[in-house]
Amino acid sequence: MSLSADVPVAPPRVNLRALGLLALLAVAVLVVPVIASPYVIEAILLPFLALSLAGLGLNLLTGYGGQVSLGSAAFMAVGAFAAYNFQLRLGVSLPLAIVLAAATAAAIGVVFGLPSLRLRGFYLAVSTLAAQFFVQWALTKFSWFSNDSASGVVAAPRLTVASLDLDAPQGRYLFALTLVVGITFLVHRIVGSRAGVNLIAVRDDETAAKVIGVPVLRTKLVAFAISSAIIGVAGVIWAYAYLRTVEPAGFNLDRSFQVLFIIIIGGLATIRGAFLGAALIVVFPLLLARTSSFAFEGLVDAGVLKLVERVVLGLVIILFLIAEPNGLSAILGRATARLRAVLRRG
């Protein structure tokens, strides 16, 4: 896969980008919780944050590492169920449960990453499906994971950190936002670090990387571990903050594809790509439903709408791959460059 990576090379003199990000962050922390309605938070912002984080994790493996994975949802499920069980069985606090869940997802990620040491390309992509089906089977089959609940669906524990009650929509939003921002910063550092450069080197030419002394095996496994850990935390957000139930059903193959689509649409091997792609994936079905109920006044039933959504999503994927393989991120990059040129001239 030949993709340009946004490895930070040298810090620009006036860091406009950092200022812009800080402003965005300030809005997200201070303004959004005040003005956003519970509907906007629960239907848009929470799934957006969870899927962005999953996309970020997958992008590390697929975009930067060049290893396509079709099993992201499995690692989301591992994260969610691990956090639930650590809290239930060991009585640990939520932050510790999240750390342990990330570690569990990382460990399982390494196990399913082992084939990558031998397999390449499509053979590897198909083998990641093994993770998807095995994890889903195990979580459904062994009711121990869901505390022997009859339906297999358990309510997520109340969201409290220390003595802070985060169970209201605003609280859940800030909880998710904190995790996402923190991990995004970490990923930013990883990508620029030696490990990140190693990963890109392995993606672009494994033999050359080996020759210049990149530890190829370790690099691959570390990528699987970090990527799975991040996707695991995304699963915790998905189950705890967004759905508020822990169940295997939602973490199916379609979810895995959704996460993959997010990074294709957003832009492989970019950090902001995951966010842009997730925004599109979350908002698009809502927009479609709104448009159809507005234009056809409910004459189009939900089943048909779901199919239309599927067709359009597929078309969007193909269109992006053909017309803009670097995704929304590249479009945004061009737009800001043009804006900057206009500002400079004016």
């Binding site: 030949s2 689509f261 959504e309 599927r310 597929g314 994927i317 193909i318």
Partner: peptide, 24 residues
């Protein structure tokens, strides 16, 4: 002339289109 992985992902999109269209 694009990478095999790109083509694979395109067929993933294609499968969504064909499945949806067949049922529509």
């Amino acid at each position: 002339n694009r990478s095999p992985m790109t083509l694979f992902m395109a067929t993933l999109g294609l499968s969504y289109v064909i499945e949806g269209a067949a049922q529509l």
